[in-house]
Computed example of a mutant assay.
Amino acid sequence: MSRSGIRFDHVSVAYGGNTVLDGLDLTVEPGEVMALLGPSGSGKTTALRAVAGFVRPASGRVFIGDRDVTALPPHQRGIGMVVQQYALFPHLRVEDNVAFGLKAQKAPKSEIPGRVAEALEMTGMAAYAERYPRELSGGQQQRVAIARALAIRPNVLLLDEPLSALDAQLRSGMLAELARLHRELPDVSILYVTHDQVEALTLADRIAVMDKARLQDCGTPQELYRRPRTEFTASFVGNANLLPVTVGSGTVSFAGTQLKVPTAEAVPGATATLCVRPHLVGLGDGPNALRGRIAEVQWRGATHRLYVDVDGHRLKADLRELRETPSLGDEVTVHFAPEDGVLLAAGVNDG
Rank of each mutant, 00 (worst) to 15 (best):
A149V: 05
R93Y: 02
V33I: 14
L36Q: 05
G38Q: 01
V33P: 11
P162T: 06
A147L: 09
V28K: 03
P154W: 04
Q85H: 15
F89R: 02
T45E: 01
T45I: 10
M122H: 05
L120S: 04
A47L: 09
I79N: 14
A147H: 09
H75Y: 15
E121W: 08
V156W: 08
G65C: 10
D160N: 07
L36W: 01
L102K: 09
A47I: 11
S42L: 03
A147Y: 08
G38H: 08
Y128L: 15
G101T: 02
V55E: 11
Y86M: 01
P133R: 00
A119N: 00
S110L: 11
P39W: 07
G65S: 07
F63N: 02
L36Y: 09
V98E: 10
A149H: 01
L150Y: 04
L157N: 06
G38C: 08
S164M: 14
S59T: 08
V55M: 06
A145G: 03
A99S: 07
M122F: 09
R115T: 00
P154M: 11
A129Y: 12
A168W: 05
A151V: 00
L163Y: 05
K44G: 13
E111R: 13
G80Y: 07
R131F: 04
G78D: 10
Q141D: 06
R56F: 04
A50N: 00
P108A: 04
A117I: 02
F54N: 00
K103C: 13
V55F: 06
Q84C: 07
Q84M: 01
A87S: 08
Q140W: 04
E29P: 09
F100T: 02
